[in-house]
Design a protein around this nucleic acid. Structure first.
Length: 279
DNA sequence: TGCCAGGGCCAAG
DNA sequence: CTTGGCCATGGC
């Protein structure tokens, strides 16, 4: 069991970070969060300024939870109006996690046109079916399926994980990625707009999924995924009623308005969606 | 029970 | 370039 003490000037809220809907493989029970990242089973809890965990080392924890970033500086940069201010007050300490790109890509393809409980359930089924079993001492845990495993999977077997019409997307994107193993390095080197265009070449990846992958999988903190909730919030609180706005308009609006850390603003607003988005 | 969900694809206008 | 129908599934 390892531990670290958070610095007093760098807030971190483990519960908000893991429950806000950016990751789908963490479960809380009895004050402990258990999650599977790569081939590691990690158990972690927070007591005030103290983190305690096992399953990985401290550098991984610091990197995965972005503990190296100056969160107060980020939050003061986006704190531009009473709406986002309320979200910052309520969710302070929420940090955007650095997800493995492949897991992030597949997860957000699965996340299209559904709800968060269903996403978690489907990813669990997919890992059980196509991942590798990891010994964890407790109940059986499974790693996220590799691109090779999904590329070779039978579509009907993928579909059996309650994935519906997304099953062929997953099989095809796995084959595309397998044929282009340097894909993540390519994305990482490109500027935002070009990286986005590159990502959208993959099956099942449109504007919104591309923005999610850039934000959560590649640390592009300027990316603003616009799902139905964020669209509602921007329309209700930031635009004139009836103002014409498609996806690109909404995304650019948020990026121009909130600045280089607009992705953080997006995630804080998303975390507060049930309080600030009506209907 | 019906509506909705961290949308994307594809054809038609 | 923009719009509209369609898509499987399960939570609420």
């Amino acid at each position: 069991m390892l531990s670290l003490t958070l610095s007093a000037d760098q807030p971190f809220n483990l519960d908000k970070t893991l429950s806000c809907g950016q990751v789908f493989r963490w479960v809380e029970a009895g004050g402990w969060w258990t999650g599977i990242v790569g081939d590691k089973v990690i158990r972690i809890r927070q007591d005030g300024d103290h983190l305690t965990w096992d399953g990985t080392d401290e550098p991984f924890i610091r990197h995965y939870f972005s503990l190296d970033l100056d969160l107060p500086a980020i939050l003061s940069g986006i704190d531009r109006d009473p709406i986002i201010h309320q979200a910052i007050e309520e969710c302070r300490g929420l940090r955007i996690i650095r997800q493995p790109p492949w897991e992030c890509l597949v997860s957000y393809i699965i996340a299209t046109f559904t709800n968060i409980p269903s996403i978690k359930r489907r990813i669990t089924l997919l890992c059980r079916e196509f991942g590798n079993e990891i010994s964890s001492g407790g109940e059986a845990c499974f790693s996220f399926p590799t691109q090779e495993a999904l590329a070779r999977a039978e579509e009907c077997q993928v579909r059996a994980c309650s994935l519906g019409y997304r099953a062929p997307y997953l099989c095809q994107v796995a084959q595309q990625i397998e044929a282009n193993p340097g894909w993540a390095g390519t994305i990482r080197k490109l500027p935002y707009e070009e990286a986005r265009t590159e990502l959208m070449q993959y099956r099942g990846v449109g504007r919104k999924v591309a923005d999610c992958v850039l934000l959560f999988g590649f640390g592009r903190l300027e990316a603003v995924p616009v799902d139905v909730w964020i669209e509602r919030i921007i329309r209700q609180h930031y635009l004139n009623s009836g103002e014409k706005a498609n996806y690109e308009y909404l995304r650019r609006y948020a990026q121009d308005y909130f600045g280089p850390f607009a992705g953080y603003a997006q995630e804080y607003l998303f975390c507060m969606r049930n309080d600030i988005a009506k209907k």
